[in-house]
């Protein structure tokens, strides 16, 4: 037990080993230690969703998870899922529908919606709104985001 923790985890498919201050949260670790600045930091108390990342197959708040807790975990960030083309149809639909303006919320929003499409592929517009209720967007008014989810679902892997 220490003020520092040694961790080894997989980030975007690559193994990473570091020694971190135990109080370091996961999103700061990704941004400052690994230079993966795609995950954003807004409120730092779980409210805005900008820091959303995927850990062991599920989205989590990067600001409410310690890097030390990610020992042995498989972490994916927006950089990783963009590179693998996993969310390409969704990203295209975001562009097509103008579902981002400043883009601050977008990485967290995309990872959240990727989980929605997997867990609730037939979600209604209302259910889409519920699922993204923890991801604040100050620009778009959400309408375009919900539209983009529907477009991405229709076009699917064909786009």
């Amino acid at each position: 037990m220490d003020m520092y923790s040694d961790i080894t985890l997989t980030v975007n498919g690559e193994s990473v080993t570091r020694c971190v201050e135990s109080r370091t949260n996961l999103v700061d670790f990704l941004r400052y230690e690994l230079g993966l600045t795609g995950s954003h930091v807004g409120c730092e108390h779980g409210v805005c969703g900008a820091c959303t990342i995927r850990m062991d197959g599920r989205i989590v708040r990067g600001c409410l998870t310690l890097a030390a807790q990610a020992e042995g975990a498989e972490v994916w960030t927006i950089e990783g899922v963009s590179e693998t083309n996993e969310i390409r149809p969704l990203q295209k639909a975001f562009v097509e529908r103008n579902a981002l303006q400043c883009g601050f919320c977008t990485p967290g929003m995309l990872l959240t919606i990727a989980e929605l499409m997997e867990r609730k592929p037939d979600a209604s517009r209302e259910e889409i709104r519920e699922f993204i209720s923890g991801n604040f967007c100050r620009c778009t008014g959400y309408q375009a985001i919900v539209d983009a989810v529907e477009i991405a679902r229709e076009k699917g892997a064909n786009s």
């Binding site: 969703g49 959303t52 708040r61 409410l64 929605l116």
Partner: peptide, 9 residues
Amino acid sequence: IAHPAIRNR
């Protein structure tokens, strides 16, 4: 309770 990402943890 809260939102999906928070319910996951």
